[in-house]
Nucleic acid binder design. Structure first.
Lengths: 129, 129
DNA sequence: CTAATATTAGTAACTATTACTGTTAATTAG
DNA sequence: CTAATTAACAGTAATAGTTACTAATATTAG
């Protein structure tokens, strides 16, 4: 049985307020502004719960720590190799690649995880100036 | 300047001998059979070097530890949600998704990372028996 | 309101990985 | 073939991210 908690609300509210795909540590720092004595363990536990229930997305883009996304809708991301930022991509879904992968494969493809890397609009602009 | 080393050779030889995408720990355990006192730090250092030079691939499929692949050619993987195994997929390249992602994106797409998840042939077979 | 218990803060523990240090061994120069 | 140089090593300590534990607190049900 799941009980409401001020801490979990604050975490979700913060994630909804940003498009920056923060790490657990960043979530912690920001939520501390409204709940100064929140524990880092609480942040981790709630991020795990929220990811489990599908209310948020966990992004593992190869960096040292996972990132979280308050938008649980299926969408894709790009990791900027210049500034490290993770940005949303507005693009069509790629469900068809599951079919490509499944052709000739003896098992079952249930889905995929994908992210792109390159240079974000800001860094691309800066490097051509 | 890069010097030859028996340890690095053994690591590469082991990775070439398997299709199992082992973790650093598994590489360590196996290479210890030929070099019993090899250090875990040496395994990590060489796996990083080999990944850096492009001789092997590092796979970060969301699990707790990275995995390594002795085949440096671009190819895709499937993570079995049943047994945790990571297997190679024989399938066409997906370079076209970079174009899809780049459409309407202000920055530059250089490439993508993708893996599939589902059920490997062995587990699919077992679950339908 | 009271009882039951999910959640918390704070801290300790754990795991994967990297850094450090003195020693060993691969390469280069003579 | 030495000897000098230094990359790489083994062993160990340290770090980073995350999870586990515990007694106290806050939420919900009745």
């Amino acid at each position: 049985m799941i009980k409401h908690s001020r801490q979990r609300d604050a975490i979700l509210t913060y994630l909804h307020s940003t498009k920056s795909h923060p790490t657990a540590e960043t979530v912690y720092e920001n939520v501390r502004e409204s709940i100064p004595n929140i524990s880092l363990g609480t942040v981790y536990r709630n991020l795990n719960m929220l990811a489990e229930t599908g209310d948020i997305l966990r992004l593992s883009c190869g960096g040292t720590s996972d990132r979280y996304d308050g938008n649980p809708e299926q969408h894709y991301h790009i990791l900027c190799r210049e500034c490290g930022r993770v940005s949303d991509l507005e693009m069509a879904g790629l469900e068809h690649i599951n079919v490509i992968a499944g052709a000739g494969f003896g098992g079952t493809i249930e889905g995929h995880f994908a992210y792109f890397y390159g240079c974000c609009p800001e860094c691309t602009k800066n490097s051509t100036e």
